[in-house]
């Protein structure tokens, strides 16, 4: 059992390190946010979670060109993921543009 664990760790240690440090980083980045920005931040983070689309791209690129199930489902996955990515960033930008407009009002 211990051997398996040690083996797993030595095989995957880069991923384990990455996992731990990214979790801490994620906590630290968000810990101080004014509530004004909660919605845009959630929306922006949501767009980043569309990164799952990379998996669909890799999958289609590696599939045989007559494997229509993989290609079809993969293309559908890309369409869904891309909606998340483009829509997410665009909607966040729209929200934040309003804050920008408001800030210029303040200086006037």
């Amino acid at each position: 059992m211990l051997d398996t664990f040690i083996q797993f760790y030595s095989d995957q240690y880069i991923y384990i390190w990455l996992l731990i440090f990214t979790i801490i980083l994620g906590f630290e980045i968000i810990s101080k946010v004014p509530s004004v920005l909660h919605t845009p931040l959630m929306s922006g983070a949501n767009a980043i979670s569309g990164i799952v689309i990379l998996g669909a791209i890799i999958l289609i690129r590696q599939s045989a060109s007559d494997d229509y199930i993989s290609l079809g489902l993969g293309a559908l996955g890309i369409a869904l993921g891309m909606t998340n990515v483009v829509g997410g960033f665009a909607v966040t930008n729209r929200m934040l543009e309003m804050f920008k407009k408001k800030k210029t009002d303040k200086t006037n």
Binding site: L18, I29, I30, I48
Partner: peptide
């Protein structure tokens, strides 16, 4: 699954920050 560090990083970043939020 796809051995992609960038996906792992992006996903965990959202997972962690989303949890804090």
């Amino acid at each position: 699954i796809y051995g992609s560090q960038i996906m792992l990083l992006g996903g965990i970043l959202v997972g962690a920050s989303g949890t804090i939020l």
